[in-house]
Each structure stands twice: as C-alpha cells, then as structure tokens.
Amino acid sequence: MLKVGIVGARGLSALKGFQGIEGTEVVALCDLDGDYLELKAKEHGVPRTYRIYEDMLESDIDAVIVSTPMQLHVPQSIAALQAGKHVLCEVTAAVAMDELWWLKETVEASGKVYMMAENYCYIPQNQQIFQMVQQGLFGEVYFGEGDYSHDIRNLAFQANRVEQQAHIGKPTWRNYWQLGKRGNFYPTHSLGPIMQWFQGDRIRSVSTFGAGWHTDNRFRQEDTSITICQMASGKLIKLRLDCISKRPHNMTYYTLQGTKGCYEAPRGLGDTHKIWIEADGGSAEDPQWRPLSDFDDYLPERYKKATEEQRSAGHWGGDYFIVEDFVNAVRGVKKPAIDVYDACEWTAVALLSELSAMNGGRAMDMPDFRNASTVAEQVIKL
C-alpha cells in the first residue's frame, strides 16, 4: 500500500486520483488552519491530521503532495525528500533561482521521485495534440503560443470582492508572490503542454515585455505581460499572462504551428478546438479548419477508456492521470512525466521574465538544469 500525505488542505485536486487507484491511500492531511483541516479530513475520510508538517513527515507515509502556497513549495519538497518521501508538487516549483538549484540537487541526492503536478499538460486535447506531434502529423513544429488570462485580483485579499481602489481585507500570499511580481509569474499552465510538443528542445533565453499599469494600481504586476522563449533550436514560444485586466477567463488557449499542420484552441463564444493537417488532404492553397474532434482517434487510449470516476477527478480526467503517472513513477514502472529538470526550466521562465521585464525586455539566458554541475555554471548570464 502506497501511503500518501497531503500538505495544504485547500489544494486537494490530487485526492480523488489517489482514491481511485488501487494500492494507494491518502492517510494524512496537514494544514495550519485546524478547523478547516478537520472539516476537510472528515469530508474526504482522511484518518490522520497534522498541524505541524514535520510531524507528518515522521509518520509512515511514503509520499507527500505539496499543495500549499507557492513560496512554501521548495522548503516543503526538500524536507519531504530528505525524510525519504516521494514528492508530487503543485506549480510553480519555486519562487527564486537558488531554490531551483537546491531542489535539483536534493532530488538527485535523495534517489526519490519528484514530479511537478502541471495538470494542464493532462487536459485531453493537449494530450491529443502531443500524440499527433509524436506521430509527425504537424511536420516540424516551430512556433507555439499559450495564453493564461484570469483576473485574480479578488484573491489578493481575504475578502472575496474588489471595490475600485480600496484595500479590502488582509493581503493574501498572492498579493506578494503573484500580483506583487512583474513578468510572467505563473507560466507553467501555458508553457508546459507546448514544451512537451517541442520534443527534446530546451529554452535558451527569455524576454518579457509589460503593457504597463492601467486597470488597478495596487499591484506591481502589469495588466498584460508577453514573454518570448527562444529555444535552443531557434524556434519560438510566445506566452501571454493577464491576471489584472477586466475580461472573461481564458486559461487554456494554445496554438501550434508546424511545417505540415497547425492547431488552435478555442477563444470562447461557441469556438471549438480546430486543426488543419496537410496529410489529411488539406489544401495548402486554400487551407480550411476542421474540428479537432474529427481526430479523436489520436487521443491516448486511457483517455478514450476513462471511467466517469476518473473524469470526475478534475480537468476532464487530467487530475486522475497525473496521479496515475506519479504512482507509476514511484513504483518504477516509468519515469516521472514532468521531472525536476522540467520543473526547474519551466519555473525559471517566471523568474527570468521578472528580470527581463524590469530591464526593458532584455533577453535573459536560461541555465541548463540538466547538465550544469558546478556553482560556476549556476549563474544568470546578462
């Protein structure tokens, strides 16, 4: 039996996944808020509760799910790894470059599984495009785009509303670690799926430009930030982050362009996932979109056969399958789908983008987390 503990009672997206996998059990829940902790433990049938994280680490659990605010992810992941526990950590992996190096080195020294829980990689359509890329239907992919538009200003204060410029309630952690930062503080939802589509490539540099402050002057975060990731191959990924503007949410918009085809996610208002593939008889002279659903044969088999219980775990089944991949990695069946090197590179986009935005969009070199082995190689090059 794989015994799992979750730290962060407000982040239970993985819980249903574990409850649906044979041979796994969530046996412990940890949170500082004792009343909320007991409420959630009773609601989900978790037998043991802890208010002190280190006490949970001293118990007989095998793995920890880190679902706390992002500034706690590295300290809690490292503590778990050093206690001999496997780790599935929510995004982003860290809030500082040094933390990424500490995390990488601890994972390598521990021999335990570390996986980042970027569940947008597991959205069915993103997995479908991944399969089609792997089978060469897009030819050589050379441009991708991800858009995360989600007004979260109401989450920056404990009150659940925002009234013009008035400070309402006590600031939450998001006020500082998200809306208190410039650049793309939260890139992994937009970036992760595209990085998987750009098979084997890595990010060489990051450039970020902000649109300025127009909507709400309480925050350092600009209304919109555009990040360009130049790949080692010379290809491009474009990311838009907008968590300030007054607009409908659009958190799962992606495009992909290759030499033999292209894909666009829906923008809303009746739009649908659409694709054009040359090999499907598409005319290069007069290309016409087709719905992605016409190509559902390319969905991974486990998505085609997903049960209602698996789909109900969240994100159209993605929250179940990410847990399944983590469990299989712990059991030695496969490598982590999003390992510590992916976690570090994708998260570093946020940290480098802040420096870039503060320096007029200057290109910031991305460290090579897989190959850098000395402190001299762990530098941010200007």
Rank of each mutant, 00 (worst) to 15 (best):
V74W: 00
W102M: 08
R153C: 14
F157V: 06
K170R: 08
Q164C: 13
Q178C: 10
R161L: 14
E99Y: 03
E140M: 11
N154I: 10
Q134V: 08
K85H: 07
I152P: 04
K170E: 13
G139C: 09
S59Y: 02
Q135F: 10
D55H: 04
H86Q: 08
F130V: 08
K181M: 12
Y176K: 01
I152T: 02
A156C: 15
L137W: 04
M115V: 01
G169W: 04
D55P: 03
V133R: 04
W173E: 09
Q164D: 15
N119S: 14
Q134W: 07
P124H: 00
Q178V: 07
G146F: 06
V133S: 14
A83W: 01
D151H: 01
V113M: 06
F143S: 12
Q134R: 12
E108A: 09
Y122A: 06
R161D: 12
M115L: 09
A83C: 05
Q165T: 09
N126M: 15
T106Q: 00
V113Y: 00
Y120T: 03
I78G: 04
V74K: 01
R174N: 03
A117H: 10
E105K: 13
A79D: 02
V113A: 05
Y122N: 03
H73M: 11
E145M: 09
A63D: 00
A93Q: 01
I65D: 07
R182I: 10
G111T: 05
R153M: 13
L57R: 01
L100C: 05
P69C: 09
Y114R: 08
A109I: 00
P75W: 09
Q135M: 15
D55G: 01
E145D: 14
M115D: 06
M70H: 10
W101N: 08
K85A: 05
N119R: 11
W173N: 05
T172Q: 11
H150G: 01
D62V: 02
V95K: 15
N154P: 07
E108K: 14
V95P: 11
